[in-house]
């Protein structure tokens, strides 16, 4: 099984690179996961990651990308609630990539 090493601790990942145990997540884990895909997390990335983590906390699901886009727009403003902005941060798909770094499961409905 794949894993990453963060601060001397081995953290198991599933076959698609998502955390095996959601409780393993720390901000450092997010940085390491992002680095593995050549992404450096900026405050703009963190805004979305934090938003997703709050959404998961409240609803117990990772939202589909359409829902994420709408919800981000409502919370952070229309200039951020659109796919162009979200894809500029997460080019492999805001749902998949942001959920991965945020330590959430792959969004339901994501193939």
């Amino acid at each position: 099984m794949a894993s990453i090493n963060v601060g001397g601790k081995d953290i198991p990942l599933d076959e698609e690179g998502y955390l095996e145990n959601l409780n393993d997540w720390t901000p450092e884990v997010a940085e390491v996961l992002a680095k593995g895909e050549d992404v450096t997390l900026t405050s703009e990335h963190w805004e979305i990651l934090n938003f997703l983590r709050e959404y998961y906390e409240e609803y117990q699901i990772a939202p589909a990308v359409r829902v994420l886009t709408k919800a981000v727009g409502k919370r952070l403003g229309a200039d951020k609630g659109n796919s162009k902005y979200l894809y500029s941060l997460f080019p492999y798909g805001p749902g998949k990539q942001a959920c991965k770094y945020g330590g959430l499961p792959k969004p339901t409905g994501c193939v």
């Binding site: 609803y59 699901i61 939202p63 589909a64 829902v67």
Partner: peptide, 13 residues
């Protein structure tokens, strides 16, 4: 898992 909070997300969908 108590998944009942997810029903509250249905409106978003």
């Amino acid at each position: 898992k108590n998944f009942s909070p997810t029903f509250r997300a249905l409106g978003d969908y």
